[in-house]
Design a protein around this nucleic acid. Structure first.
Length: 555
RNA sequence: UGGGAUGUAGUGUAAUGGUAACACUGCAGAUUCUGGUUCUGCCUUUGGGGGUUCGAAUCCCUCCAUCCCAGCCA
């Protein structure tokens, strides 16, 4: 069953016998000029998913035709990000630069056939003579240069005899075409940049419209899938596939790229955020890069689920950020180990609890997963609880701790608040309570109910940790929509650091990649910089919180 | 204004001439040793106008709206 229009096309092609060897071949073709982001996940899942579903293969091809912007660092990150998602391209790792020799030959061939020429117009002249959207372009004065002259000049371009911008190899198509991409598109330009893979071997580099279709054809790609903005390039794609007598020319199909509100996804903007130091790097947990969300604690499974829920179509759309949060919560709910962590601690003293006693209580590691086992938590007279779990003057509907109210300390005892101490500024520092020894384990023989349950850690046994509370990097749905500058919409509270949270002792051996739920708070994961002496946890996403939502509404 | 595309609940995606649906969001409630999870219910949809047809989201005409294209970027 086809899940989207591309699968429908593939199934039709397969059924009609239009696919050589009945093996579909796709490719994921990133340009190594930045880190992969969430938008790429859609393309990766589509291309690798298609190959898996229809028993074909998917190539990884680095589209490295612009050495001025590309870098080895990006190539490495791209590969590790795809692997993290769980996809394997096997031996099918290719580079557009692998085809430079062939591409060069084809270009010479085109010149010999009179289908390409060397243009000596300045870039400015090329632009002006291209015409506009409504007016046709004008032929270059060099359009009818002799084949011999073209051959000589192209050779000299390749030999580094001319500066950048001096000459340009163009296809001889149609300067009057209503499709601007067909008005004698550039094939080769001079560039003296060092290429990450070919070094200084070349000083002419082929353009996308020339390189991409031919790379696809060389690799035997059957279905070349790209985003909507390349729709206009399809005639150029088909032209390039037609010049070399290819048996089974690949076809290009376009789908809508993934947009998500509250996020910026263009590589230009992401690079700017990195370069301006607004984030700590490409893998800052607030970045929508794959390495960023990995560090943030998102699971690959949740992201694959997310893009599959988004679907594939040709309508340009903006997906709700909340769908992504739903997906990560749903996955982490099933797999995250539950722990107790008090982010903003106040001391809770149980006045009638023995001074030197330590009891141990068993706690489930994950109520959603019985196989996750249990752990033992120490309990003493002095504990830490969350500051927001006690109020002197609670609003209606508050069923946490207040003077005279009884709550449960998760898995331990029922306690009733009796008094509190405050500092000179009126801030509560200590809450005093009494416990009911009969309620041991969190239930009483008389079966009475309490409405509130708080998490806690024993003050004596607690370990300290730094907590990084991440939130959206932008505070508006469409960053920059109002002012034209997306940087105006940065969320000043996208990162709030808690220096000294109180954590249950077992957290000392948590490692990056662990999925944790800090009970009643959110999902967290150890940061890469976390050490045994200085624990650091990143908040992936909060738990849904209907209480704070209700409070916000009543305001 | 030339060319290329796209219009289905707030958001995303199905339904290919036969009862407009699923998920997320939102709202209400139940359950719960996480105000989490789970469960139940509710809200809201075919861009407009014509036409063809017993019957149109689907086919035709027309209008409207939105997006993309004038890099020697991809």
């Amino acid at each position: 069953m086809a899940d989207n229009f591309i699968e429908k096309i593939i199934e039709d092609d397969l059924e009609a016998g239009r696919v050589p060897g009945n093996t579909i071949v796709t490719r994921f073709p990133p340009e190594p000029n930045g880190y992969l982001h969430i938008g790429h996940i859609k393309s990766i899942c589509l291309n690798f998913g298609l190959a898996a579903k229809y028993g074909g293969r998917c190539h990884l091809r680095l589209d490295d035709t612009n050495p001025a912007k590309e870098d080895m660092e990006y190539i490495d990150s791209i590969k590790s990000d795809i692997r993290w998602l769980g996809f394997d391209w096997g031996d099918n790792e290719y580079y557009a630069s692998d085809y430079y020799d062939q591409l060069h030959e084809i270009a010479i061939d085109l010149i010999k056939k009179g289908l390409a020429y060397v243009d000596s117009q300045t870039p400015e002249e090329v632009r002006i003579n291209r015409g506009t959207l409504t007016e046709p372009g004008k032929n270059s004065p060099d359009r009818d240069r002799s084949i011999e002259e073209n051959l000589r000049l192209f050779k000299e371009m390749g030999e580094g005899k001319h500066p950048e911008g001096k000459y340009l190899l163009r296809a001889k198509l149609d300067m009057a075409s209503p499709n601007i991409n067909m008005r004698d598109p550039a094939l080769y330009r001079i560039k003296f940049a060092e290429h990450p893979r070919t070094g200084n071997k070349w000083c002419v580099y082929p353009m996308y419209d020339f390189t991409h279709p031919i790379s696809d054809a060389i690799e035997g790609i059957t279905h070349s899938i790209c985003t909507l903005e390349f729709e206009d390039h399809r005639p150029a794609y088909d032209w390039a596939c037609s010049i070399d007598n290819i048996d089974h020319a690949p076809h290009q199909y376009e789908f809508a790229r993934l947009n998500i509100n509250y996020l910026v996804m263009s590589k230009r903007k992401l690079l700017q955020l990195v370069n301006m130091g607004i984030v700590s790097g490409w893998d800052d947990p607030r970045m929508p890069t794959i390495s960023g969300i990995r560090r943030r604690g998102y699971s690959p499974e949740s992201m694959k689920d997310f893009v599959s829920r988004v679907g594939v179509a040709k309508v340009e759309s903006v997906v709700d950020y909340s769908l992504m949060e739903f997906c990560v919560r749903e996955d982490l709910n099933k797999r995250a180990r539950r722990v107790m962590a008090v982010l903003d601690p106040i001391k809770l003293v149980i006045d009638n609890y023995p001074e030197d006693l330590t009891e141990y209580f068993e706690a489930e590691n994950n109520p959603e997963d019985p196989t996750a086992g249990k752990r033992s938590l120490p309990f003493t007279k002095e504990l830490y609880i969350e500051r927001e779990d006690f109020m002197e003057d609670p609003p209606k509907g508050y069923h946490r701790l207040f003077i005279g109210n009884e709550i449960r300390l998760k898995g331990a005892y029922y306690v009733t608040a009796v008094s509190c101490e405050k500092d000179s500024e009126g801030k509560v520092t200590v809450v005093h309570c009494t416990y009911d020894p009969e309620s041991k384990g969190g239930e009483t023989p008389d079966g009475r109910k309490v409405k509130g349950t708080s998490h806690w850690v024993s003050a004596k046994h607690a370990i300290s940790g730094e907590i990084r509370l991440y939130d959206k990097l932008f505070k508006t749905e469409y960053p920059g929509a109002d002012t034209g500058n997306y940087l105006d919409d940065l969320n000043p509270e996208s990162l709030v650091v808690i220096k000294d949270a109180k954590l249950e002792p077992g957290l000392s051996d948590a490692k990056p990649g662990d999925y944790l739920q800090f009970m009643r708070s959110g999902y967290f994961t150890p940061d890469y910089d976390s050490t045994k002496d200085h624990l650091i946890f990143n908040r992936t996403v909060t738990l849904k919180d209907s209480w704070s939502k209700q409070m916000a509404k009543n305001k």
